[in-house]
Write a protein that binds this DNA or RNA. Structure first.
Length: 589
DNA sequence: CAGAGTAGCCAC
DNA sequence: AAACGTGGCTACTCTG
């Protein structure tokens, strides 16, 4: 390793700035006293050039010293190479108001190169080993960075940042070979918006939430009592009066299944679908409601309270930028992408006084992508004329005028429109339509006939889907519009596996392009918000939530809409993109 | 006793 | 018989 220089004197920084500004590429890393930017401080900022390593001790220098390096860190040049840049971006933004510009993230690059293989790990040590055959020690990362630093710690900090430059070279090679340069640019430009969104967090009305939780707890107690008395006759043991001594654990699918069978219900499992035939049975009704209340209480009720940030009082999800092979974000701790869409729950996500939430979501983005890819004349016609696609589909399928389409017909058309994008077959379509029709059964033949009439109307959609599925199987990969890649490993002699790959081949380009568009929108919206006291606070696959000062809400809402549409147009040329925007005090549409 | 696997269910 | 895509979370249950 080249030698490193520890910098503790502000006087050294002016010369360093000129030196660094002349470099095309820098490795950048930080060491912090905690992982949470609101609770930890930045101790070290390490910067690597191909020749030298600089370790800045920010406890000695003070945070304001970073102002001197602001042009280096914020500018388009040099390129900053980081591993998991989101982390450092949050720290630098929160503590020094610095917005990292022009990032190359070796973790995201490695995830793109993995091309959908979610078993691969992407820690710095894993990636260095995989692409450079070098061992990197990560143990000191978790050491105490707040006191006197040992030589070992400083050497670790220096080694960590130095490896980023050769790592970038190796990864650029891979990205080029796999045609992933455009996808990488998209991801890198999304890092700062993602970091800012996490820092901002979702506003959360904890008092309103507590009131909800109490109501749920009462309801659950009531349901539990009712269920136990219904199940008493079949409970494991009885007391002298024939009452259940050992109650059934209502949270145990196995025990519940046993209980239901003893009551005479012939069921495979206890899922909602399994219980559909018995939906009017009193025990089943109680059980399903118990489950839904229990889910609300366990996952959300207590979970959100535990995750409420001690400093901000808000919910800061951990967004995994490439959390899925399709390029969608995933989110955890808590997952604020899966908040139940119930008015009383969404009402707890409420902008602070004087502020508003802008909820902007793409209208039917995936179906528009399908129309674009397939260039199906009928589907294009519906979108180009701004018509209700599901209604038009029903009108064409059932050969009735659009205004005569019944609710049920529209619901069936909607089910097919969405289902076919997932590669759904006749059997599951029949099951879904049975749900739509509220227990009126539908035969396999009937479902097949519906699919046939659908593809008679949307012939090109059918052709595109078939080709997408077949191509995925023959070339063993699939791409989104940005070039994002998913490589498929499967046994071609296994019909089930082949069918699964065909479904992925149909779905991935659509879902993946949806993710491309949203990520582009994250960047464009983030840039547009700069002049305002506004911030992105959540992002859910086809939706962006922005918090803004009340006075600027209408203006910013229009800006958000424009930027989201502009993002869509970069990928979708012939189909119009529509974005629905609502300004509200809470997260409601 | 920690980790893995499973069922069930929340989002898009 | 099932075969509808992508995730995360909780609780139960089994395993070593």
């Amino acid at each position: 390793m080249s030698t490193y220089r520890v910098i503790t004197q502000t006087a050294e920084l002016e010369a360093l700035r000129s030196r660094l500004l002349a470099e095309p590429v820098l490795g950048v890393d930080t060491e912090t006293t905690a992982l949470d930017p609101y609770q930890g401080r930045i101790r070290l900022l390490q910067i690597a050039t191909p020749e030298d390593i600089f370790v800045l001790d920010l406890f000695a220098l003070g945070l304001q010293a970073l102002d001197i390096l602001r042009p280096v860190l914020e500018g388009e040049q040099p390129v900053k190479v980081l591993h998991n840049a989101k982390f450092d971006a949050k720290m630098l933004r929160h503590h020094a108001g610095i917005e990292l510009g022009r990032v190359f993230d070796t973790m995201l690059a490695s995830q793109l190169v993995a091309a959908g293989d979610m078993t691969k790990r992407h820690g710095l040590a894993d990636v260095a080993q995989r692409y450079l055959r070098e061992r990197v020690e990560k143990a000191p990362q978790l050491s105490d960075w707040s006191g006197e630093l040992s030589r070992g710690q400083l050497e670790y900090a220096a080694r960590d940042v130095a490896i980023l430059l050769p790592l970038r070279q190796a990864l650029i090679q891979q990205l080029k070979e796999l045609g992933l340069i455009r996808a990488a640019k998209l991801e890198f430009e999304c890092v700062l918006p993602t970091a800012a969104m996490e820092l901002a967090g979702m506003p959360f009305d904890v008092e309103r939430w507590r009131a909800l939780v109490e109501a749920w707890e009462q309801r659950r107690a009531h349901l539990e009592e009712a269920l136990q008395s219904e199940l008493a006759p079949v409970a494991t043991q009885m007391d002298l009066f024939g009452r259940a001594e050992i109650a059934i654990n209502l949270n145990s699918p196995h025990q519940v299944l046993t209980g239901l069978r003893r009551l005479g219900l012939t069921v495979e499992g206890t899922s909602e679908l399994d219980l559909l035939p018995y939906r009017d049975h009193p025990v089943v009704r109680l059980l399903l409601e118990y489950r839904s209340v229990q889910k609300l209480l366990s996952t959300f009720g207590r979970g959100f309270l535990e995750h409420r940030h001690p400093v901000t009082g808000r919910l800061h999800g951990d967004f995994h930028q490439i959390g899925t092979p399709t390029g969608r974000y995933s989110c955890s701790d808590p997952n604020i992408q899966q908040v139940p869409n119930l008015p009383e729950i969404r009402a707890c996500f409420r902008a602070p006084a004087g502020r508003r939430l802008i909820v902007a979501d793409y209208s039917q983005i995936e179906l528009r992508i399908l129309a674009e890819f397939s260039q199906d004349p009928k589907m294009l016609e519906a979108f180009l004329n701004g018509l209700d696609l599901h209604r038009m589909t029903a009108s064409w399928m059932f050969k009735v005028p659009p205004e005569a389409v019944t609710k049920e017909q529209r619901a069936i058309a909607k089910t097919i429109n969405f289902g076919l994008m997932y590669g759904m077959g006749a059997a599951s379509l029949a099951a879904r339509i049975a749900e739509v029709r509220e227990r009126t059964d539908i035969s396999l033949a009937e479902a097949e006939a519906l699919i046939a009439s659908y593809f008679e109307i949307y012939r090109r959609v059918g052709e595109w889907l078939r080709a997408a599925g077949d191509t995925a199987v023959s070339v063993r990969h699939s791409r989104s519009q940005s070039g994002r890649l998913w490589r498929f490993q499967f046994d071609p002699s296994d019909r089930e596996q082949v069918a699964a790959i065909q479904r992925l081949g149909k779905n991935f380009p659509i879902q993946g392009t949806g993710a491309d568009i949203l990520k582009r929108a994250m960047r464009l919206v983030y840039d547009a918000l700069r002049p305002y006291k506004a911030q992105i606070v959540n992002s859910i696959h086809d939706e962006i939530v922005v918090e803004v000062a009340e006075d600027h809400a209408p203006e910013v809402a229009e800006l958000v809409r424009e930027r989201m549409i502009a993002a869509g147009r970069e990928f979708i040329k012939t189909v119009p993109i529509e974005v629905e925007v609502v300004i509200s005090e809470a997260w409601t549409k």
